[in-house]
Simulated scan of single mutants.
Amino acid sequence: MPELGWSRGGDRRVSVLAYGAGLGFRAVGERHCVGARGNVCPLGAVVPGRSTGGRCAECARLDRAHSVAADTMADDPRTYRVYLAWFGPGMVKVGITGEERGAARLREQGAVAFSWLGRGPLMAARRTEEVLRAALGVPDRIPYAKKRAVRGQLPGAEERAGAVAELYARAAELEGRGWPESLERLPLEVVDQVGVFGLDLDPAPGRSVRESAPAPVRSVRELVDGGVVAGRLVAAAGPDLHLAVADGGVVVLDTRLITGWDLTAVTRATEVTEVPEVTGSDVRVPLIDIGGGGVQGGLF
């Protein structure tokens, strides 16, 4: 099940979110920098509502300076894995993650299906990643907006697995051509995360595609002081919560937008009294009224 972590001072908690249950909170005051590497921002800086990083420029620099992605940890002794991830038709990527993290990185990115390709030292994994990106013509990242656009109508499990297997076969053909000897190739084993994300199950018999969780039609652009998000959780992939709205549609809340806010619980529909400001497919939240459905669990 998806989880949402939150803290107040040194008090840190995790709330387990259940599909079909209600979820509600109100943003209060100003949004402040969340700091870097577990440390509080020394400036207590206010950050923009639309920032998905939730950090001021200085804390963002410090956070990235100690990340694997910045290539500043060449002497890291841990074992890393190279993965092949599929996010939807035509959207695949190659990446690396620490072996001890298991599939956490793939869940964080919202990978619908994936397979491990190899394991080994950091620099061997990084080199393999670079070789495969260049040879296979795949990007190093896929925008979340593109991932969200296809989640409502995914092909069946067989087609998803086939896409990963095809990418794996193309990657395996490159072994020995720039592939470091210290990287051990792992066998193809497709892991499908549609059920984990709440995006429905396999297609019904005789049908190539089945309706998944309702396709999101709007997304939260930013929160504001007093802004309320309240609704029924229908899916969760990567940082995105898919929330059913009163008009029958689905709004996506990127949870990276709520970091740095003080939040209070909202549990009653009577607390929702305003009207959302909508521009195109985006919602700037003085309010989203998503209606009832289920009972809120341990959040706050």
Results as ranks from 00 to 15, higher is better:
residue 144 Y to A: 11
residue 178 G to K: 07
residue 290 I to E: 01
residue 85 A to Y: 02
residue 144 Y to M: 14
residue 160 R to V: 10
residue 186 L to S: 14
residue 257 L to A: 07
residue 278 V to M: 04
residue 270 T to H: 00
residue 136 L to Y: 00
residue 111 A to V: 03
residue 133 R to S: 04
residue 75 D to F: 02
residue 100 E to T: 15
residue 162 G to I: 11
residue 165 A to Q: 09
residue 201 L to K: 15
residue 82 V to Y: 01
residue 198 G to F: 05
residue 282 D to H: 08
residue 270 T to F: 04
residue 129 E to V: 01
residue 253 L to N: 04
residue 249 G to P: 03
residue 38 G to T: 05
residue 73 M to L: 15
residue 16 V to F: 00
residue 219 S to E: 09
residue 75 D to P: 06
residue 190 V to S: 11
residue 121 P to I: 00
residue 7 S to V: 13
residue 182 S to K: 10
residue 286 P to N: 13
residue 294 G to Q: 04
residue 173 E to R: 06
residue 65 A to E: 14
residue 284 R to V: 15
residue 186 L to E: 15
residue 245 V to Y: 13
residue 163 A to N: 03
residue 89 P to L: 08
residue 247 D to L: 02
residue 46 V to E: 14
residue 106 L to M: 13
residue 157 A to L: 13
residue 162 G to N: 08
residue 60 A to C: 11
residue 231 G to W: 07
residue 208 S to P: 10
residue 83 Y to M: 09
residue 98 G to N: 13
residue 24 G to R: 12
residue 250 V to K: 10
residue 138 V to H: 01
residue 180 P to D: 14
residue 287 L to E: 15
residue 236 A to I: 01
residue 299 L to M: 07
residue 53 G to E: 05
residue 174 L to R: 13
residue 105 R to I: 03
residue 110 G to Q: 08
residue 115 S to I: 02
residue 296 Q to S: 12
residue 191 V to W: 02
residue 208 S to M: 11
residue 60 A to S: 14
residue 106 L to T: 07
residue 246 A to G: 06
residue 52 T to V: 11
residue 78 R to C: 08
residue 106 L to K: 07
residue 188 L to G: 12
residue 46 V to K: 03
residue 90 G to H: 06
residue 72 T to C: 08
residue 227 G to C: 00
residue 134 A to K: 09
residue 49 G to M: 09
residue 118 G to E: 06
residue 248 G to S: 05
residue 87 F to S: 00
residue 24 G to K: 05
residue 269 A to N: 09
residue 60 A to V: 11
residue 145 A to C: 11
residue 285 V to Y: 10
residue 205 P to I: 14
residue 23 L to Y: 08
residue 219 S to N: 10
residue 278 V to Y: 00
residue 283 V to D: 10
residue 204 A to C: 11
residue 27 A to C: 12
residue 247 D to V: 05
residue 162 G to P: 06
residue 131 V to Q: 00
residue 189 E to N: 11
residue 175 E to H: 10
residue 96 I to M: 08
residue 140 D to M: 08
residue 106 L to R: 00
residue 79 T to H: 06
residue 230 A to S: 09
residue 230 A to E: 13
residue 223 L to N: 13
residue 36 A to S: 08
residue 185 R to Q: 09
residue 193 Q to G: 06
residue 287 L to M: 01
residue 74 A to W: 07
residue 79 T to P: 04
residue 232 R to H: 04
residue 83 Y to I: 10
residue 138 V to P: 08
residue 283 V to G: 07
residue 281 S to E: 09
residue 94 V to Q: 05
residue 283 V to S: 07
residue 201 L to V: 14
residue 111 A to I: 07
residue 152 G to F: 06
residue 132 L to F: 06
residue 195 G to N: 12
residue 224 V to T: 15
residue 275 V to T: 13
